[in-house]
Computed example of a mutant assay.
Amino acid sequence: MSDYDFRPGGSLKIKGGASEGGVVKKKKKSKSKGDKVDAILEKASSPVPASPPGSSGETPVASGSSDDRKTAAERRFQQVQRKRLADKVKKMANTTHKDRVHEFNAKLESLSEHHDIPKVGPG
């Protein structure tokens, strides 16, 4: 036989794997929807800080901020968007899973038969 012995067998070796003392790190889990909803509710329901005496009714903004460059229409749009988001979050927080399932089933019943899944196969 030759100097080189190429016999198949054994598992593949991965550089830096756990077998050679490397550490395998787990991915962090993202927060659940409930935590996000709570955070949004807290942010939306937090009171606006009172302005110090002698200042105008505007909220203090750091110079060079993106709010300085926004038009009145853009500010109104963002305010309406925040209000809609807060309303949506409140509605989602008030409805239970049972209510959502009931609404979904009612919606499916109102659809025409065109949306039904056709049977495939014999019989």
Rank of each mutant, 00 (worst) to 15 (best):
E42A: 12
K98F: 00
D3E: 10
D99C: 01
K26E: 15
S110T: 09
A72N: 09
P47T: 04
P118K: 14
I14R: 03
A50Q: 13
R75D: 10
G123H: 13
V101F: 02
F104T: 11
E74L: 05
K15H: 00
G10A: 11
G21V: 03
A44R: 11
S2L: 05
Q81C: 10
K25A: 10
F104P: 00
S46P: 00
P122K: 09
M92D: 11
G22F: 05
P60R: 09
S32C: 05
Y4F: 11
E42H: 05
Q79M: 03
K31H: 08
P118N: 10
G34T: 06
V24S: 14
R84H: 09
G9Y: 06
G22S: 07
I14T: 07
I14H: 03
A50S: 13
A93F: 02
L111S: 03
A106M: 08
A73V: 01
E74S: 04
A73W: 02
E74T: 03
V80S: 14
G54P: 09
G17W: 05
D5V: 05
P53I: 01
D5T: 10
K25L: 07
F77Q: 11
D3W: 03
D116K: 04
V48R: 06
S11H: 12
D67C: 03
A93V: 05
K43N: 10
P52F: 07
D116W: 01
V120Q: 11
S110W: 02
G16V: 00
F77I: 01
S2I: 04
K70W: 00
V89T: 12
A86V: 00
K90L: 12
A39H: 06
T95G: 04
I40A: 15
P118L: 06
K26A: 15
A93T: 09
S2Q: 09
V37F: 01
A39I: 01
G22W: 08
A44N: 09
G54H: 10
V24G: 08
H115D: 12
V101H: 03
P8C: 06
R7Q: 14
E103V: 02
T71Y: 11
P52A: 15
A50H: 06
K91D: 13
S112F: 00
G34Q: 12
A72E: 15
K33H: 10
K119T: 07
G10R: 12
P47K: 04
D116M: 02
K15I: 00
F6D: 11
S2G: 14
G54T: 04
S30R: 11
Q81T: 13
K36T: 08
D5N: 10
R7N: 14
E20M: 04
A106V: 04
V101A: 11
H115I: 04
A72K: 06
P52N: 09
K26G: 15
D38G: 05
Q78Y: 06
P49E: 09
E58H: 07
R82N: 10
T71H: 13
E109Y: 05
N94K: 12
D38I: 01
T95F: 01
P60M: 06
E58R: 08
H115T: 13
L111V: 03
L108Q: 14
K88W: 06
V23P: 04
H102F: 01
M1C: 11
A50K: 14
P8D: 15
A18T: 07
T96W: 07
A18G: 01
R84F: 00
A72Q: 12
S55V: 00
V80P: 01
L41A: 13
S30G: 07
E20W: 00
